[in-house]
Simulated scan of single mutants.
Amino acid sequence: MADQPVFVVGAGLEALEATAFATEEEFQELLARHPRVLDFGTLSDGQPLRLVLVAREMGVPTSADSGSVYRLDHLFVDADGVPTLVEVKRATDTRLRREVVGQMLDYAANAARYWPAALLQHSFEETCRTDGRSVEQAYGELLGERSSDDFWATVEERLAAGQMRLLFVADRIPLELRAIVEFLNRQMRQTDVYAVELTQYRGDGELKVLVPRVYGEVATAAKTPSGHGGTQRTTRPELQAALDTRCTPEVRRVATALLEHAESRGKLVGGTGRFPSMNVHYRMAGGGWVPIGTLSLYEDPAREEFAFSLGSIVTRFGFDATAAFADALPSAGGLDERLHQLRNTNFNGWPSVSLAALAAESGAVTAILTAIDQLLATHEPRP
């Protein structure tokens, strides 16, 4: 049955008829300018959800050295640091049935691995400047009492843990897609999946009415809590308890050296993933903080590693300083090979090394700590 018109009562009665979007570009531009049409649900403190645009056509790599292979239509984020990935299709696009689902899952899987905090922050601030928005005002909607570094580190951690929203947006959602969305939402504990049908009504004048209808909320409500409604950070005692119960004395010594060095010269920020983790931040000479890396104790499969936040380092100190830092790091566990590959992508990545490999190579931990000290002491941060 055809859509019934929407009636606007003013001086008279005006009927607005359902009207298809002329182009996908028009559809995408509307969402970028008016993300409130996608604001359903609440934040962890009970406040209404307010999505903020990070970027349009956000590049998605498929490896540490591939560059952007795909382009996500829109990336939004909310004040809880939960990223929202949006793909837009018109009903006339036959890919809306099944192909778009595989496409979105591909984007989400690779974004979780290859979108460091520094890249997300740069994309957001560049989008603000391009759109003529004040960066400070945009941050005012997101940060609260947090620093921008802490906020984007939280977004990155949520991505790594799979704590995100996936939104399929179209002017008509077919039954096949609704069924897939409901199924995925029931099966995926950390990730929420929705389909949003956005119908446009227009009359003879300039008046336009947008009516969103959301599919997938029933399956979301039936889930056990996924954890991305709040920010439950790993505490230092919790991380230590995990180290004591699952790690060898050699691995514990490596972890303790890395953590104590950060505590004495910077600060530790607990991770928000499903596994115990701790981010190490250091104060820069010109003020502010730089996240150097993350110590993580993964559960499935069980492994302990330290990952370097090279994207954050290169954003704050530049390529040459980051290259010198990378050259000073040890070769343990093939770390040198991964660092060499990342030179071709402006060090956009999170190269990691297992704590066991660091423990097995004499002087490896000392080399890391010395490299950090040299980076902070000999290079002024970029303006």
Rank of each mutant, 00 (worst) to 15 (best):
S66R: 13
I372M: 12
A364G: 10
S63N: 13
D204T: 13
F27A: 01
E145G: 09
A241C: 09
R146D: 09
Q121T: 08
D73S: 06
S148E: 11
I313Y: 02
A32K: 02
F168T: 01
T370S: 14
R36W: 03
D106F: 09
L376A: 01
L335M: 10
P383W: 08
T191W: 05
D93Y: 07
A360S: 14
Q121D: 09
L49A: 05
Q232W: 06
Y215W: 08
Q137M: 08
A2M: 13
T378E: 10
V100N: 02
V290G: 01
L85P: 06
V52M: 09
A18V: 08
S66C: 11
M188T: 12
V37Q: 03
L96E: 07
G46M: 08
V54L: 07
E136I: 07
T84D: 06
L159V: 07
V101P: 02
A118V: 01
A11N: 13
A20T: 07
G102S: 08
G205S: 15
Y201K: 04
L375D: 04
P212A: 00
T294W: 06
A302P: 14
R71C: 07
R246T: 15
L96F: 10
C247V: 09
V69W: 13
L258P: 07
D192Y: 12
A219C: 02
S63D: 14
L268G: 00
T127C: 05
E206F: 11
P225L: 09
T42M: 07
M188A: 12
G287I: 00
K208F: 03
L16V: 04
R33Y: 02
G12H: 12
S226G: 15
E299L: 15
S331R: 14
Y107V: 01
W152Y: 04
A326C: 15
H74Q: 03
G363L: 14
D149L: 15
F325R: 07
G162P: 05
T366S: 13
S331T: 14
F183T: 13
I173A: 01
T256H: 14
A326M: 07
T62L: 14
L268Q: 03
R33P: 00
T234M: 05
S226C: 06
D39T: 02
A328I: 01
N279E: 10
A364C: 10
